[in-house]
Nucleic acid binder design. Structure first.
Lengths: 246, 246
DNA sequence: CGGGCATTTGAAGCTGATCAAAATCAGTGG
DNA sequence: CCACTGATTTTGATCAGCTTCAAATGCCCG
């Protein structure tokens, strides 16, 4: 039977081998489901929370607001991602958790997660490892932002989005739902929405990408990877998982 | 008496309260000290390591190399930082660990760290929390790279460098050793060395910063923070620590 | 003193930002 | 089913920030 934490469990299993007792402990958690409209701030920088957000549907972002009011999104999270797992260990947010699209998420109480890993220490290691993956992705994006052109950054995002969607079992790495607007894509890639629009048109004209109706189809994935200088090592997927998804 | 892991312990104590048994267990570790010249790659992307690097002297960076050979540095680490702590949980590196200056570091065996946290589970939480701080800093830098001008990025780096140096007890937030060349500053801030040179000159002419002889003095810290839109929340320092350092 | 880095300066050219407006689309209610 | 509304995408023109290439100057160390 389907349980709320199944998708998260699936994500953990990509990088951890878990015993059936450990799985059962996680699956036993029964968190509250919450829904929010696009643009809603689920957690604001400075907030003190007592639950972590497990994305169930839609896309959630980790965003930062500067003094001048402009928003930049540092990371995105799709179904199965616990976008907030670190809040268990550091309950004061240093950023905003924002619904990028209409979305549904579970509010998983810190208390329950702590109880689970106190009984099963290997789950604490698994949580740590999950944070490490998050950090690795962020690290990659620092260098992507600082070293690649806007076109390459967009291409890089598409490559990553595809693989992560595929890993979550929600699409394949060359055709996946993509419900973000150009303005949000701009926030994620550090460009203006106008410029993103132009570059998307270029990618379309070059027959690399076929966007449409909340979907992206990658027409020429090898070429797209090449122009993005894409190397998926940073996702820290096991060798076997990587084989399947590329 | 001074022990190799004392500086790291000091860092952990900024955000964790540790029992004397926990401290003693960490202090008992006797790692090998290693020295490297500037530009040396200590760990290369793809390497499988069995130790973590604790910086003792100098500056170590986490860097990424693109297909075209250009290097970008995603993060820097100073004395007391375990730049590699995550390698305990994920021993395959997804990036390079590079000596930015001549440096000394301890090679702390994963085995010993694991033994320590298996006996003292709260240390595992402390390690997790350390990774979370790392991720938080990386997250901030994604938005800094994507949203701020080159001048603001340099200012941001100086602000962070000062606070972190002060927190490690190696200087104050407005005057600290800064042994990086303009080319390395460029790699860290996502600009060319030429442009960094010009912007440094601007900052000097505006009497915001006084650089010299491997040192930085911040002449007008409030103003520098203002132009960088600097908000130190992301360093996840406790309220008390923050008071002392700002 | 001389050689290798690092910094400074100059000029030209691109990338991407900004501002403004038109065209397209999605959803709503009449 | 159409007309209306607000959001999103597309197009155009101008301009600033930054890169690139090149060369000159300054600095440290052997």
């Amino acid at each position: 039977m389907d349980r709320p934490l199944d998708l998260f469990l699936k994500r953990l299993k990509l990088r951890n081998s878990l015993s059936s007792a450990e799985c059962a402990a996680l699956r036993a958690i029964e968190p509250r489901l919450s829904r929010k409209k696009a643009r809603w701030d689920i957690v604001r920088s400075g907030d003190h929370t007592d639950f972590a957000c497990l994305v169930a549907e839609g896309i959630i972002g980790r965003s930062d607001q500067f003094a001048d009011g402009s928003r930049r999104t540092a990371a995105f999270y799709i179904a199965g991602d616990m976008c907030d797992l670190h809040s268990v260990a550091v309950p004061v947010a240093g950023w905003n958790i924002t619904a990028l699209t209409d979305c549904a998420y579970y509010e998983v109480p810190h208390e329950e997660l702590r109880a689970v890993y106190q009984r099963h220490p290997r789950l604490l290691e698994a949580f740590w490892r999950d944070t490490i993956v998050d950090a690795s992705v962020l690290s990659k994006w620092v260098t992507v932002m600082s070293g690649l052109s806007a076109k390459q950054r967009i291409a890089h995002l598409f490559c990553e989005f595809g693989i992560r969607t595929a890993a979550a079992g929600l699409g394949s790495s060359d055709a996946f739902p993509f419900p973000l607007t150009q303005a949000q894509l701009a926030e994620l890639t550090g460009a203006t929405s106008v410029h993103v629009g132009r570059l998307l048109a270029e990618l379309r004209d070059e027959a690399l990408v076929r966007p449409g109706r909340g979907m992206i189809e990658i027409a020429d994935l090898p070429m797209l990877r090449k122009i993005a200088a894409y190397d998926p090592t940073y996702l820290l997927l096991g060798h076997s998982a990587q084989q399947m998804l590329l």
